[in-house]
Amino acid sequence: MRIVFRCDPALVDVLPPPVPARDAMPTWLKEMAPRMDSALHARPVRTLKQCPPFVDAMRHGFMILLPCDVQVSGGRFSWNWDCPPSSVDCMPRSPLSFHVHEQLAGSPQGRAGQAAIKFNSFWTIELPPGWSLYCTHPANRDDLPFRLLSGVVDADRFFDAGINFPAVWTDPHFDGTLPKGTPVAQCFPVSRESLALDCQPFDAATAARFTDTVTHMLETPGVYRKRYRVKR
Rank of each mutant, 00 (worst) to 15 (best):
Q103H: 11
F62N: 04
D56F: 00
G74M: 13
S94A: 13
S78V: 09
A105F: 05
M91A: 12
M63E: 07
F62C: 09
G74E: 03
D69S: 12
W81P: 13
V55R: 08
S73M: 02
S78T: 10
D82Q: 10
W79Y: 06
G106R: 02
F77W: 12
V45S: 03
Q71C: 14
E102M: 10
L65S: 01
R76A: 11
W81F: 10
G61A: 07
D82E: 09
H99F: 06
T47K: 00
C83P: 00
H60N: 09
L65W: 08
R46N: 10
N80F: 04
F54D: 02
M58W: 07
V72D: 04
S87G: 14
F77C: 01
C90N: 11
H99I: 06
A57R: 09
M63A: 07
T47M: 07
V88M: 05
D69F: 04
L48K: 13
W79S: 02
W79E: 02
P52D: 15
I64V: 04
V72S: 12
F98N: 04
S78M: 03
V55G: 00
R46P: 00
K49V: 02
G106F: 01
D82S: 15
C51N: 15
G106L: 00
P108N: 04
S94T: 15
V55K: 03
C51S: 13
H60S: 11
M58A: 14
R59F: 02
M58F: 01
R93L: 05
F98H: 10
P108M: 03
R76Q: 14
G74V: 10
Q71L: 11
D89Q: 10
A105G: 11
R93V: 09
S107R: 07
S107C: 04
V70K: 06
F54E: 05
V45T: 09
C83Q: 15
P108C: 00
V45D: 00
V70H: 03
F98C: 13
L65G: 08
W81K: 08
S78E: 08
M63V: 08
G75I: 08
D56E: 12
S94Q: 13
L65P: 03
A57E: 15
G106T: 03
M58T: 14
H101R: 05
D56L: 07
N80W: 01
A105P: 01
V55F: 06
D69Y: 07
P67H: 04
A57T: 14
D56C: 13
F77Q: 02
M63P: 13
Q103F: 04
P92D: 11
P108S: 05
D69E: 15
V100P: 01
H99N: 12
V55M: 01
P84R: 06
P52M: 05
M58P: 12
